[in-house]
Structure formats: structure tokens, C-alpha cells
């Protein structure tokens, strides 16, 4: 079975680490398994065969233990941690600034994703803000910065094609970002599947409708996006923004400045 496609090339690093870890651990497991099966056959109880008395506390045994420990620590642990940390810094080390990114505010509630975007004027909190439920539209080619708040319970914003997810909590703002390089159309062409959509899942149990808390993300080319944005902004006033969304301010601590 094929792995899910990625939304850009950078996140394939996660797949690469997964494969690296798989190969590394498979080798270790193969050795363990070979010994387990080999010893089980070779040293089975039978007439004329006697167990060899050894307690394994000789200096040689201690040296062997130390060598194995070192191999595991430096060969496995450190190498895995090194590559992983590298990927972590690359993907999550530098949040994009709000000026260069497409900023999306997410208000998660049981059981829907509410998205808010600034619209044509680029200012959040104005007349032409674009709101939508379970449908996110972003342009390709520049990073998307998602700032998330929950109105009730925990949710987790999960786009499998970005190989990442982030929990959404009441009482604090969390952020998630990714570079959508591949438009939905391009992904459809690549997969040869005209019905393909980027799907957004809720990965943290949020109640009885958890299963159906599904969103669709459409990635357009910048030109298509500009057209879409202008259209939606023109119709924006029709949308009744729930008061409660603005009852509390963004946590100014990390990624986002206040939008007033």
C-alpha cells in the first residue's frame, strides 16, 4: 500500500526518518530473532545434551554488556535523535512571520473546524474577513500559519499530508505551520484521482462526534486564490460571526501579535 502523498518535499524528511528507524530497528530485531530461533533449535533439551553453567558475571560478560550498551546508545539512540532533531528544527523550528504567511485563525468546537481569514484587505477583524466551516482554502507557494483556539474541549488539528498535527486547547493559543507546495489540482494529477481532496482530521478524542470532525483543505495557485479571496470577501458581510469567538484574546506570548 502506498504511503499518503506529501504536501511538499520538506516533510518527506519525516518519512525518511521513519524508514531509517525501521531499517535500524529491523536489523536489531533480526539479530534478536536469529538468536532466539537459533538458540531454541540448537540448545533444545535432548539426550546427551547438557546445559553449560555460566552466570554471566565474568569480566568478559561485563565488557560485552558495556559494548552492547555503547552500540545501542551511540549507534541507535544518538543517530536517531540527531536526525530527528534536525527534522524538528527544519519543520517546526522557525514559525513563519505573519507578514510572509497566509494566516488562518482556527476556532475548534464540538464538532467542527471554524476557519477565519483576513480577506482582501489583509486585516483580521474587519468587514471582509472570510469565515468558513470545515473548508479551508489556502494558496500554494507561501507558508500557512494556523493559530488555533478551542471553544470547548481538546481537539487536534491533523493534516496527514503535512506529516504533523497540533493539539487545540481551550484557554491557550497553539500554532501550526506548513508550506503547501502542491495544489489540490497537482495532487489530483499526481495520484490520477480526480476526486482527491486534502483532508483535515481531528486526532484528539473530542466527544461523540469526534469521528465526523472532518475538514477539507483546498490548495489553489496564488492566482486562483486571489480570485477566490476577492469573491469571498465581497460576500463576507453575509456571515454572522459568533460573538463568542472574540470574547478572549490571543495568547500574546508566542507566535502571534494581537490583531486589533
Amino acid at each position: 500500500m502506498e504511503r499518503l502523498i506529501t504536501i511538499n518535499d520538506a516533510v518527506t524528511e519525516i518519512d525518511w526518518i521513519f524508514d531509517y528507524a525501521t531499517i535500524l530497528t529491523s536489523c536489531i530485531f533480526a539479530v534478536v530473532l536469529a538468536m532466539l530461533i537459533g538458540f531454541a533449535i540448537k540448545y533444545r533439551e535432548r539426550p546427551g545434551h547438557k546445559a553449560h553453567y555460566t552466570r554471566g558475571d565474568s569480566p568478559a560478560a561485563v565488557r560485552m554488556s558495556i559494548v552492547v550498551a555503547m552500540l545501542v546508545f551511540f549507534g541507535v539512540d544518538i543517530s536517531l535523535a540527531y536526525f530527528d532533531h534536525h527534522a524538528f528544527l527544519e519543520l517546526y523550528g522557525n514559525p513563519p512571520s505573519q507578514d510572509e504567511a497566509t494566516v488562518v485563525d482556527v476556532f475548534a468546537k464540538q464538532f467542527e473546524w471554524n476557519f477565519a481569514q483576513a480577506g482582501s484587505d489583509g486585516e483580521m477583524g474587519t468587514e471582509d474577513d472570510i469565515f468558513s466551516i470545515n473548508k479551508l482554502t489556502v494558496p500554494a507557494g507561501k507558508p500557512v500559519l494556523v493559530r488555533m483556539r478551542s471553544l470547548d474541549v481538546l481537539h487536534s488539528f491533523f493534516i496527514p499530508y503535512t506529516r504533523g498535527k497540533q493539539d487545540v486547547l481551550p484557554g491557550m493559543t497553539t500554532a501550526f505551520w506548513f508550506d503547501p507546495d502542491k495544489t489540490t489540482a497537482a495532487a489530483r494529477a499526481e495520484l490520477d484521482d480526480p476526486n482527491f481532496e486534502y483532508e483535515i482530521a481531528c486526532a484528539e478524542l473530542c466527544g461523540l462526534g469526534h469521528t465526523t470532525m472532518r475538514g477539507i483543505m483546498t490548495v489553489l495557485t496564488p492566482e486562483e486564490f486571489a480570485v477566490w479571496e476577492a469573491e469571498e470577501s465581497a460576500n463576507a458581510a453575509n456571515f454572522d460571526m459568533p460573538e463568542i469567538w472574540w470574547d478572549w484574546s490571543l495568547d500574546p506570548a508566542d507566535y502571534a501579535e494581537e490583531d486589533e
Binding site: 526518518i17 528507524a21 530497528t25 530527528d84 532533531h85 487536534s156 491533523f158 506529516r163 498535527k165 486526532a203
Partner: peptide, 18 residues
């Protein structure tokens, strides 16, 4: 051995809750 995968921060952000 699969515990190693999940100990890794970046990889776990992908595999968590799956």
C-alpha cells in the same frame, strides 16, 4: 523497538494518536 519511533519528537508529531 517501536517505542524508539515514538520517543522521537518530530516523528511522534506525525505518528501521535494514530
Amino acid at each position: 523497538l517501536t517505542g524508539l519511533f515514538l520517543a522521537l519528537q518530530a516523528l511522534d508529531i506525525w505518528l501521535h494518536d494514530t
